[in-house]
């Protein structure tokens, strides 16, 4: 059931997708498309609709409205045909913990219909990729998170799917394992595998070819990390470290020249008018109110800052015209 309107170079096309659970709108008119071999990252807070979108693309959930094409196939109409072309891995890694590494690979190889003569070679590749050669007979329950994650990926690509869906694959895994995992994703992308990956780690966005910013079921932006970072956040960005963040927020909200204040861990990010005076005005105000400033200087906006700014703008505009 291929749609002639979908070209071979487009791996995924989503038109006006809506998903409701009762009254709750999980996905609110999302449209986008992904070219073959690209890595697209879904970024957004928990509950933004990332997992729901991925599950619809895999045919695990039905769209309420709109159409979804994966590998040129209408997923809602023919989910079974789509399954030949996709791999999927969720944040649970979905392995059998009471089975060994090898038994898991053999099981998934079997149910994914990997031809018998190809299976040993594919299993060897997956073991090598996961760094588990020599540990074939270890029970999965004894593996640390990073290994489970790579084994989960290994199981999901045994049948060599041209399109791969990864739902928060790096959550709960140490930074070193996360970096190794992204190396694997890039090598798959080099082999022309299209990859859809969701994450709530903003720093991982840099590894994607394109970023879809999602908040409350809406697609706020879909562009490359560099385009996104070049976005004008509407002023200069200052980073502030001080001894009383709560007091600083109260003082700076509505302060002349200040457009927005947001807390990032133990720091404040302040967007100010492009005017060199803002920084010293802020320093004066804080000093007058006995806030001890440890650091105040201008920084380059990160994707985090852009995301916070865009979410703020989107929510403001929705409040203005509901």
């Amino acid at each position: 059931m291929r749609d002639p309107a979908v070209s071979d170079e487009v791996a995924i096309r989503v038109d006006n997708l809506v998903k409701r659970f009762g009254d709750f709108v999980a996905i609110d008119h999302i449209s986008f498309q992904v070219e073959r071999g690209k890595i697209i990252g879904f970024l957004g807070p928990n509950g933004a609709g990332k997992s729901t979108t991925i599950r619809i693309l895999c045919g695990l959930l039905r769209p309420t409205e709109g159409r979804v094409f994966v590998a040129g196939i209408d997923v809602a109409r023919d989910p079974e045909s789509v399954r030949q072309h996709i791999g999927y891995m969720s944040q649970k890694f979905s392995l059998y913990s009471d089975l060994t590494v090898l038994e898991n690979l053999q099981f998934f190889g079997g149910i994914y219909r990997v031809p018998k003569n190809l299976l040993p070679e594919r299993i060897h590749f997956a073991l090598e990729m996961a760094g588990l050669l020599g540990r074939e007979n270890a029970l999965v329950s004894t593996l640390a998170g990073g290994w489970k994650q790579r084994l989960g990926l290994g199981c999901a690509i045994l049948h060599r799917p041209p399109i791969l869906f990864l739902d928060e694959p790096t959550s709960g895994v140490d930074p070193e394992s996360r970096r190794r995992f992204w190396d694997l994703i890039h090598s798959l992308s080099d082999a022309n595998v299209t990859i859809v990956v969701s994450t709530h780690y903003m720093d991982e966005a840099e590894y994607c070819n394109e970023i879809a910013l999602i908040d409350r079921g809406r697609l706020l932006a879909l562009e490359s990390p560099s385009t996104l970072k070049a976005r004008n956040i509407g002023g200069d960005l200052l980073a502030l470290e001080c001894d009383d963040i709560g007091k600083a927020i109260r003082l700076l909200k509505g302060h002349p020249g200040v457009r927005d204040v947001a807390a990032f861990g133990n720091r404040l990010h302040i967007i100010v008018d492009r005017d060199k005076g803002a920084s010293s005005a802020i320093a004066n105000t804080l000093a007058q109110h006995t806030v001890l400033v440890k650091r105040l200087d201008q920084i380059e906006p990160t994707i985090d800052d852009i995301f916070v700014q865009m979410v703020g703008a989107e929510r403001d505009s929705r409040r203005a015209n509901p």
Binding site: L60, E80, F93, Y96, S97, F108
Partner: peptide, 13 residues
Amino acid sequence: EIGTLEQIMVSPI
């Protein structure tokens, strides 16, 4: 409950 059913559902079984 353990999540493996989702993995089986996306397979062509």
